[in-house]
């Protein structure tokens, strides 16, 4: 019975996930005429600075998301149940608008002579810098950090707090010794759900970064537009492998006893 229920998903996954992956691998290891060639992968050394900057911006954005998102998730989880629903809805509210439109609006609002600078008559320059790209990433992906952590914290038995306090833990100790370790799986899911789209994002950097630098997603897009499919496929492949490695490392460090791991990939 359960195999029938899974059939639509298997069909979907094979057709749109597994098959395309094979196509990517095929293109990555062939040249334009279709014969085997390892040179696409070898040529990737030229793209090292782009890989590096993508990874760096993604790490910074993810850390900011975590620092902003964890206290928020904690506050929501400790609010009264009827208020929690409202807070979560407010958090999700921006996601009702398409990501591209939100990003384009940030550009219009923060531009040198954009809405905010005109309103306050200031000369605040952020659009076109890496700071703007990080801001865009944090803004767009923050809900993905908050939601899993919130779910995780709200599932923690209320008695844990009481027990810890009864046994003489200060509020800070309760936080660091009880709540944080128990919400670890939420943090891992959140970090995964923010880090991965941050690394591979391509629209945010083009609009908010002013096109003066590129992230790896932009590079892949441009390769395909210029008809350099083989290089584009090679970059995609290497990026997927890099993401898998970083997730594996993260998983290993934070969850060595393998009990309540977060959702990986």
């Amino acid at each position: 019975m359960h195999s029938i229920a899974a059939a639509p998903h298997i069909f979907w996954a094979v057709l749109f996930v597994v098959l395309p992956l094979f196509i990517v691998v095929f293109y990555a290891f062939t040249d334009e005429s279709g014969s085997f060639s390892p040179w696409n992968i070898a040529a990737l050394a030229d793209y090292f600075p782009i890989f590096l900057i993508s990874l760096e911006l993604a790490v910074i954005a993810t850390c900011i998301c975590l620092l902003l998102g964890y206290p928020l998730a904690y506050a929501i989880a400790r609010a009264k149940p009827q208020h929690q629903k409202i807070f979560i809805m407010l958090l999700m509210l921006p996601m009702w608008t398409n990501l591209l439109i939100r990003t384009y609006s940030i550009m219009a609002i923060l531009d040198d002579r954009g809405f905010l600078n005109t309103l306050f008559d200031t000369h605040f320059h952020i659009i076109g810098t890496k700071g703007a790209v990080i801001f865009g990433m944090v803004y767009d992906f923050l809900p993905y950090m908050v939601l899993p952590i919130y779910t995780c914290i709200s599932k923690i038995d209320k008695h844990m707090w009481e027990a810890a306090s009864d046994l003489g833990c200060s509020p800070i100790k309760v936080m660091t010794r009880v709540i944080l370790p128990l919400s670890r799986s939420g943090i891992i899911s959140g970090v995964t759900m923010v880090l991965v789209p941050c690394i591979s994002t391509f629209y945010i950097s083009q609009k908010l970064g002013g096109g003066t630098f590129e992230l790896i997603g932009d590079t892949i897009e441009r390769q395909f537009l210029n008809g350099a499919r083989n290089i584009g496929a090679a970059i995609s492949l290497v990026m997927m492998i890099l993401i898998l490695i970083s997730l594996a490392v993260m998983n290993r460090f934070t969850d060595s006893d393998g009990e309540d791991g977060g959702i990986i990939v």
Binding site: P49, L52, E56, I60, K130, E214
Partner: peptide, 14 residues
């Protein structure tokens, strides 16, 4: 596009 990409604060922070 790669030229001049690296700004020190990005490397240091990350």
């Amino acid at each position: 596009k790669v030229f001049g990409t690296a700004e020190p604060w990005v490397h240091i922070t990350s």
